[in-house]
Amino acid sequence: MGNIYRLETPLKEEDVVKLRIGDKVLLSGIVYTARDAAHKRLIDLIEKNESLPIGLEGQVIYYVGPSPAPPGRPIGAAGPTTSYRMDPYAPTLIAHGIRGMIGKGKRSKEVVEAMVKHKAVYFGATGGAGALISQSIREAGIIAYEDLGPEAIWRFKVVDLPVIVVNDTMGNDLYEQGKERFRI
């Protein structure tokens, strides 16, 4: 495993350029959730030059559709969903300022190139560790697109959310390089 960093959102360029694949990051601050349906709406607004429900500069987007909050908790299970469904939209959001994405699974060439060009990173959270990740989420509220149900945009206040750098700003890919290392 690489280095361990504690980072606060919003992320600055200098926060992300030092990261390398395999580094573990404990993220704190605000992250916004969005899945495919919410991405589509954000991109439609950008194309029409209209204002967005969230500012994008330095933000981290978490690909998750949480389960409902049981009584006494801010949110239910909240692990990552598979990221490729967001690939058609991600380069535009990266070009408009986001510095990080949290999900699971491979990204397209276009997304990796956008990360290199605009200095952003892709973090992997542990898929299926929904109850564990839920512990890092201290506050949660829907801020847009409530009609999308589990696909609405949530604002999470997180403390030490554990993620691993999968794609860094140098174009490296932990899925490719990790697999090569252990292939027999």
Partner: peptide, 26 residues
């Protein structure tokens, strides 16, 4: 990294049973 993930999955299963928060949001 793989060991870290497996440890997370065991801790996740323990937490899900204890807190009744689902193992996975899906």
């Amino acid at each position: 990294v793989g060991q870290d993930i497996l440890n997370q999955l065991m801790e996740n299963a323990r937490l899900a049973k204890e807190t009744k928060v689902p193992i996975c949001q899906d």
